[in-house]
Amino acid sequence: MTLEPTRRGASSSVLNVQGLTRRFGGVVALDHLDLELAQGEILGLIGPNGSGKTTFFNVLTGLYTADSGSIRFGGTEITQASPQAIYHAGISRTFQRSRLSLPLSIFDNIMIGNHKRLNQKLWFNLVRRDAFRAEFAASFSQAQALVEVFDPPLAGRMFEPIAGLPMIDRRRIEICRALISEPKLLLLDEPSAGMTHEETAKLMDDILVVRQRLTGLTIIIVEHEMGVIERITDRCIVLNFGRKISEGIFAEIAADRQVQEAYLGLQ
């Protein structure tokens, strides 16, 4: 299978998925999925509810194990790797239902995503308080700068608990949590859920701004809002019943009869 040229100019392959299959009892949630992703690409993953999009993310991030098939990330096999190892390898994600820790502050939530770049030694944390203070201050500046891209006023409220924030801000923080560790691959699971059109458009623009700064960031986005998909993706894959039924730029898949049927069939 050859890689299709993309608009933003692809370089090497970042993610290579072959024959990925996952069953739940009798239901085949992912059915021999093949997928190739070039560095810097934005891939849209669409399909009706229950077509396997989130399952794909969960298998990719190691929460579910694959029944068969393989996932190679940056040339390394990660099919059986733990979620922790996959995060360390440079994949991070957001969740369909926002999974922030509500009682914790904005800063704390973002730092959860920064795990691999923080010194986790007990001695460092508990005894060497000056060194810890320096790391803390540096991390704070980074987190604040990142939040500033999305919403400058929010950056002034870093020690406020998430519980008091509206949905749009929660989405922003969740994306900041995924981005703070400068991953190579970002998985966005329905970032527009619970937000208005305008809010979604603004959020997507902000994500693109961050992407400019993190050179080479590759993104897979699961999304129901076709406006978003059309505007920001380089290429799309359509899933139905866990199987890939179409692939191409948005205009192509939108014209695909099979895709229309898959969506219409559900309505």
């Binding site: 929460l63 922790q84 995060y87 991070s92 969740f95 914790l104 959860i112 010194n119 007990l122 810890f132």
Partner: peptide, 24 residues
Amino acid sequence: RSWVGLNLDALRLDETAACCFGLD
């Protein structure tokens, strides 16, 4: 008041999210 406390909070509040961000 350290990353240790943050880790403990993170795993108490959402183990699944915590392991997606590398927490052992």
